[in-house]
Amino acid sequence: MVPGELRYTKEHEWVRVDGDEAVVGITSFAADQLGDVVFVELPAVGRALTQHATFGVVESVKAVSDLFAPISGEVIATNHGLAGQPELVNSDPYGEGWMLRLKVADAGQLDGLLDAAAYEQLTSEG
């Protein structure tokens, strides 16, 4: 279920490293827990994110949840598709439901994140 090549936070974000860039989204587990996503607020391109600090908000019908940066880096793109189709976060959280692309500031931060096995264990513990 959990893609093996990604890294994860305890707050249920995923990060996919792509050269010196990284793509960030939230996990399928997080999307299921939230329920139907109806709104995603993302930072402006150019903003510098700090690891573990909030970078945006995802809202389902019932709940508002903060998004946390899995690693530090400058935002180089955000997923404009989510403005019109926030439900992509539910239907394709690791694909079309991606949230933003970062310029990786410190690749060493990736080592502190969970791998797929550790994340799977975290979510199966409830």
Binding site: D36, V38, V61, K62
Partner: peptide
């Protein structure tokens, strides 16, 4: 029950 299939549906 708070939801079954999903609130929107």
């Amino acid at each position: 029950p708070i939801q079954y299939a999903g609130i929107l549906e």
